[in-house]
Amino acid sequence: MRFVVVGSGKTAISVSKAIAAHESAELVGMIGDSRRETVQSSFLKQAEKLGVKAIAVKSLKQDPALSFLRELEPDYVISANNFMIFAQDALAIPKRATVNFHNGPLPAYGGVNPFCWALMNGETSYGITWHLVDLGIDTGDLLVQEVFDIDPEDTALTLMIKCIELAISSFRERVLPILVSGILNPYQKPDVAHTYFTGKDVPYGGVLPWWLDADALIRYGRAMGFAPLPNMFYRPLLKTTNGDQLYGARVEIGSSQPGAVPGTIIAADEQTITVATAGASLIVSELYKRAALKSEIPVNDHPIKVGDTLITET
């Protein structure tokens, strides 16, 4: 069986290695995302080590991606940590199927940052899914799904790491043997509603939710927990009744402040703002002027001060 891997990072590298090591599989090509991959990247370097043809592209909807795939004549295309969309022309090329890894249990948690939403929703279990790719996004038939318990201390970062590790082991132990056998037996979960989160979906209207109860605040803090990696979810808005506003990239749960009025600023310096709640406090750091998750220098001076009051809506 001939395989092409599309993706980036640890998951795509490990999947490529597993295919290359399997006696009944042949890794014939690797495609990286040029928006995320460079010639010096680990994924494309791995292709060189494996002696496999590789390219980096901006899109899978046109050449050179389509001509590269047609030349290689794969039986399967494997999408792992891939953020490019497969159009019909690309899906028609592999002789058997295109298979994608999704870091959430489909169909309940599709889209971007599903582990953050699961933590905020108070889920006690989570999972990863290998599924067939169709013209929708995260809508194809399921191939393999692995479910595990969420630990009370799990954050967005630890849950994301667990998903990556489980994706790698499940591909090697379950997915690859199924694909090589040629007997896929894909299935659906018609009793579970399909939910899809876009990168533009943000909780609580994008505002820092200082009004939440204690349990919801803890869940929120865990969902925002990416440290030491950059925040990949969203920057909540802190806007005062005076009209001053900032966006925070880091949110941590602090100790309670008896007597403090929820929604008021109880501590503030150039880099950190602490907000009182009905239970614990919210410590917000890495402050920015804009909401967009992109390269930007944090502010080192701002007008928000102790005693200011935050609003509850934009």
Rank of each mutant, 00 (worst) to 15 (best):
V6D: 08
V6W: 12
G7C: 09
S8A: 12
I13L: 08
A20F: 06
A21Q: 13
E26S: 12
G29Q: 12
G32H: 04
D33I: 09
R36D: 12
V39F: 02
V39I: 14
S41V: 00
S41G: 05
S41D: 07
F43I: 11
K49D: 10
L50R: 12
G51R: 06
I55N: 13
V57S: 08
S59P: 02
L60C: 13
L72P: 00
F86E: 09
A87H: 15
Q88L: 07
D89M: 06
A92F: 10
R96Q: 09
V99P: 15
F101G: 09
F101H: 08
G104M: 12
P105S: 09
L106S: 09
G111S: 06
M120F: 02
T124D: 14
G127I: 01
W130Q: 03
V133Y: 07
L135I: 09
E153P: 03
D154F: 09
T155Q: 02
A156E: 05
T158I: 07
M160D: 01
M160V: 13
C163N: 14
C163T: 14
I164N: 12
A167D: 02
I168L: 00
S170W: 01
R172C: 15
L176E: 11
K189Q: 14
D191C: 05
A193P: 01
H194F: 15
T195R: 13
T198P: 00
G199R: 03
K200F: 14
K200V: 04
D201Y: 02
P203N: 08
G205R: 00
P209D: 06
W211Q: 11
L212I: 05
D215K: 04
D215V: 04
D215R: 05
L217C: 08
L217N: 04
R219L: 06
Y220W: 05
G221L: 09
M224W: 11
G225P: 02
G225T: 03
L229C: 02
P230R: 06
F233L: 09
R235D: 11
K239R: 11
N242V: 08
N242D: 14
G248C: 10
G248A: 12
I253F: 07
G254S: 07
A260E: 08
P262T: 00
Q271H: 10
T272F: 02
T274I: 13
V284F: 14
R290L: 15
P298F: 00
H302T: 08
H302C: 06
K305M: 08
G307R: 08
T312F: 13
E313G: 07
E313K: 04
